Amino acid sequence: MVDVGRVGIWSIGLRSDEPGAAEELREAAAELEELGYGAIWLGGSPGVRHAVPLLEVTSRIVVATGILNIWEHDAADVADRHKSVSAEHPGRFLLGLGASHAAAVKAYDKPYSAMVRYLDGLDAAGVPSSERVLAALGPRMLELARDRTAGAHPYLVTPEHTARAREALGPDRLLAPEVKVVLDTDPERARATARAHLGFYMGLPNYTNNLLRFGFTEDDFADGGSDRLVDAVVAWGDVEAVRRRVTAHQDAGADHAALQVLTGDRGGLPRAEWRELAAGLGLR
């Protein structure tokens, strides 16, 4: 199994296709490794190719797709790219896979069956199950992650979900939930930052249905999320508040926490916050 360490960074900004951003991305990746993070999770439906420049400028940190959309990338092509990247950087690339959402995919149909077929294709091409994880939320996808991959990378979840996911995965599979962070001690401002981010996800049934399983109601999804929901899925406050949330996930069975720092710039690189978290969490 790929070793992602205990804490990583989840970021859309680190997978930018803008030519002018390439140098800053490399610098940021190198700094994350120096700061002691165990993994970089590339958000925004990345391809395998987005991991390559970050792997090239680092020597230890794992780079993962968080997650690759199976509707957008052919399994055979992904397998070829995976083989090349893994040969060049052994033990440092993790293929995170997800079935996305009906609202975002034109030919969306039976995501569980589609994922099974995709994994069959990766198996046939020789991609080791130990080098891939699933963006699993519900029971069936978690069981598939247990049986066909190294584990699960759930997104927009609470520690209560982490506990249930650990039960479904068993003791030996990787469980690496994404954890949203707002480093702001002002409640009104912190929750406003969180809601600006959460509003998009409150319209996606994959996420809202999962939250309903954990006691939230439709009322909690209005206007970017109720205070109760925001406080449950976003660790806001100082670094100590983030530490408590990471500990809650770890106590519930998580092996790794993928921290997504939320600011007003969704695609930006919050490097000052990454430094503050690394120092406060004692990663070095």
Score class of each variant (00 low, 15 high):
P128F: 03
E34C: 01
P270W: 02
A165Q: 05
G215Y: 10
G215K: 12
T263I: 06
D227Y: 09
A103S: 14
D184S: 03
A190R: 08
E131H: 14
A279E: 15
P270C: 02
T217D: 12
L54Q: 10
A22M: 11
R213N: 14
P139S: 12
G96S: 06
H101D: 09
P19K: 01
G151W: 12
Q250D: 07
A248S: 10
R166Q: 05
A136W: 05
R49D: 10
A39T: 04
A76V: 15
A278Q: 10
T58H: 14
N210Q: 13
A168Q: 02
I12P: 00
D74C: 07
L142W: 08
A192P: 06
S86N: 15
Y112D: 01
L169V: 08
D255G: 14
A279Y: 08
G267C: 05
N210G: 14
E188T: 15
A152F: 06
S84M: 12
R173A: 06
H153T: 07
L262G: 04
N209D: 15
L198P: 04
G225Q: 09
R191W: 09
L277V: 00
P171M: 08
V242K: 02
L35R: 01
Y207M: 08
D74T: 04
A222D: 11
L134Y: 10
R245P: 09
L134Q: 00
T247Y: 02
F221P: 07
E131G: 06
L259D: 05
S129M: 09
G13M: 10
L55W: 13
S59E: 15
H256A: 01
H153I: 09
T65E: 11
A104M: 14
Y155Q: 10
N206G: 12
P139L: 10
E218S: 14
H50C: 04
